[in-house]
Design a protein around this nucleic acid. Sequence first.
RNA 1: CGGGGCGUAGCGAAGCCUGGUAUCGCGCCUGGUUCGGGACCAGGAGGUCGCAGGUUCGAAUCCUGCCGCCCCGACCA
Length: 566
Amino acid sequence: MLWSKLFIPTLRDNPAEAEVASHRLLLRAGYIRQLSAGIYNYLFLAQRSMLKITKIVREEMDAIGAQEFYLPALNPAEVWKESGRWDVMGDNMFRLKDRFGRDLCLGMTHEEVMTSIARGELRSYKQLPQLWYQIQVKFRDEPRPKSGLLRVRQFTMKDSYSFDMDAAGLDASYEKHRQAYCRIFDRCGLKYTAVEADSGAMGGSQSHEFMVESEAGEDYVVYCAATGYAANLEKAVSRPVAPAVADPEGDLTPEEFSTPNFKTIDEVSAFTKLPATSQMKSVVMVGDGKPVLALVRGDHQLSEAKLAGVLGAAEVRAALPHEIQEWFGAAPGSLGPIGVKIRLLTDNALEGRKNMICGANKDDFHLRNVTPGKDFKAVYHDLRQVAAGETNIETGDPLQILKTVEIGHIFKLGYKYSKSMGLSVLDESGKEVTVIMGSYGIGLERILCAAVELYHDGNGMSLPASIAPFTVVVTPVNMKDEALKSAAETLYAECNKAGMDAVLDDRDERPGVKFKDAELVGIPWRITVGKKLAQGIVEVVERRTGKLTEVPVGEAVEFVRKGLLG
RNA sequence: CGGGGCGUAGCGAAGCCUGGUAUCGCGCCUGGUUCGGGACCAGGAGGUCGCAGGUUCGAAUCCUGCCGCCCCGACCA
């Protein structure tokens, strides 16, 4: 293609509203333009990259035997009401009414519609397993769209769904997806980690997220370099650091003491001259409307995701001040486990501890010498969020906490949708069996964003060749010089003939402008046709490294071709 | 939804406090000179100053309301 004919509106200045690198560069390099908050126009370059990403995804899905569908984005309310998610999705779902007043919504995901197809058509175990997928637009009314294309209200997803007879079948479908996802992200040139993810309260048995490390991310991953252990912070486990001071010995009895205006863990620490690890922190939560007191060590933080998992609750929130007053007869800052009537859960890190400090459920008083299991009934669970400085629970190796972007998620759904929507088939013996399902998603724009986040520098982005809008740009430094012009045209034609995705920068611009634009847009290779052409030499420049090689004209295309092969 | 910031030409900004005909850089158009890292000279086009009210002889500037965008938090199947 000829650059002079293309619409590539690059900007000299950084757009004021863009803070994260991918947002800033996609705007500046002329890939995208914003239409509204969380709604973007994909211009020529973005669409070209998206098509390449789509192609890779499609090839790898097809390779595991998945069949491509295309489902409507416009969904009737009925299927969503059947699964219960018409209500669960709340304000995140875009809803509308048709001219007759019937409820419709824009699809956020397609478990319901896929399941409705399956239950209408699948009758026999002989038809299973099935792997169905689509590449389609999704709509989510995000409370706060942000970071360019990273969190938006409309985006493209590859979503697939597996239907199997039993857990072993689901395991196989899941594993196929895990491998396909690795191939997809490898081919897109991303550095990523597959991490254990929270499968939520609704019965899913296993789930992995594919994460790319990035400052622009919103998820935290706990990673152990020594063992390869990796898990979402919501799910991760660790060995806590030992208490800073040993517990007092002996079989002591709880004893009240006055702590006027000392409410926080730190204040009580300062007052008692004992570290936070000697205290028990009481966190009052409400899970699906029911109160619960979660007890964790003073220096630890409650994980709401883990608590929700233990409770089997869909929604967990902090208790309100008046609720706490009613249930405890005291205000936050003086709460404790002794004598409480509501459900009580205790974190594993408190097991075996004794003679600790906690609130007395009486304003401005605390208790010392409180022993879990003796002074109150302790039901132990893992409720604690992993913190920096902790170590691998198995091996004691150091753990890191990384900020990441989620680009894919695979999920063993189990029977949630097949049960609620009545999807079953007959087995060999003629018995009706509920089908077991999995669902698997990739956010396609996030692949592009993650690539920009990973590969950019002060001059712009530096995309992997597999997803860059062009793989090579041929740049004559002066279009008025007939020799340079015709040599460049020849090189460009040869690139095309060699199957490369080439663009000829035939604009009547000074070389600096062309170099800057090519680097901003992130084209992996550039062939510069300049003065040395007289000696039969052109320059080949690799965007990622900036490495410049002088090559005889006749060998330039082959040089780039080899470079593209890596 | 809570907190903060911002809306002036395609992009980036100044002007606003202290009211008096709309300013700068880049980009764009025309002509010329240039041509290896965002050229130079000359001429030019482009703005209901987010919207609506109000105050005033006069509002980008002061007041009120609304809308939009960004960031932090809450939320995130």
